[in-house]
Design a protein around this nucleic acid. Structure first.
Lengths: 141, 141
DNA sequence: CTACGTGCAAAGAGTTTGCAACCGA
DNA sequence: TCGGTTGCAAACTCTTTGCACGTAG
């Protein structure tokens, strides 16, 4: 199932229509993630209105189609695990690059264990590392 | 070392003055964390100007005195591990409560291991759980 | 056809900046 | 005293909302 089919399925399944604007937003996310709201708006400028983009992203978030990844005071967007695979990110404080981390069983298990201990019914989780990537470490030393 | 002494130390050590405004912001964070920017501004309304609060929080973040914890599109603020103990949060999607989680060795080790594997020099990390707290699970069922 | 979606425009939050006055060491 | 800090006011960016028109099913 490719991105478009997947989107169509998620929308229909929840009683929403597949529209051209929704498709454009989804394709932008698929192609450029992680991407900021501003970038999405710029890339779709003229094609989809700002307000509609906000409405679409809000809907996508409710349906679990996109996730927001916090970067300092702001955030970026990317398609959820339904479209890609489960992963987390590391942010380089020097070059601002966002690195995608490989999935780690032990880490995921730790999270689940803690949730169980707290009797917290977990639906999602987010992990974010801050520091310096290998390239920037070499430059600075 | 209490909160005020700790603040004084962190500021002096980095060449900044201990001012009344900085003290007020710090005390507000100590007393009400996690707290949103808006709440800080409201609580200090009349005593410290909005712009100064932003400047102070930005400085505090650079010095590692405060950390931002993302909550959806927004964020809240709290004093860093230097003032409290290292911990993470769980957000209840129903009652919006933010639960402080106990420290977990296994989890912290997993994080360090992943950073090492990626040759990423980690300085900080965030973990955030989403789901439903035990109270809300009972209400809904 | 008809309810859901979108564009437009304007309002409402949240955040930043320049500059003159102020205060802490 | 003197440079770092703050208050004020204005600008700017980000996000939301109401309403009339457009469009998918």
């Amino acid at each position: 199932m490719n991105v478009v089919e997947r989107l169509q399925h998620e929308l229909r399944h929840n009683g929403y229509s597949m529209t051209n604007s929704r498709l454009l937003v989804c394709q932008t996310l698929a192609k450029h993630a992680p991407i900021s709201m501003r970038e999405v708006i710029n890339r779709l400028g003229g094609k989809v209105d700002r307000a509609s983009i906000y409405r679409i992203v809000t809907l996508f978030e409710e349906l679990g189609i996109v996730r927001k990844i916090p970067t300092g005071w702001k955030y970026k967007l990317e398609l959820s695990d339904k479209f890609t695979h489960h992963h987390h990110h590391a942010h380089c404080l020097s070059c601002r690059q966002i690195i995608t981390l490989p999935e780690d069983r032990l880490l995921e298990q730790s999270i689940e264990k803690i949730a169980q201990q707290q009797e917290f019914a977990i639906t999602d989780h987010h992990i974010e590392l801050h520091g310096y990537c290998s390239d920037c470490q070499q430059k600075d030393s």
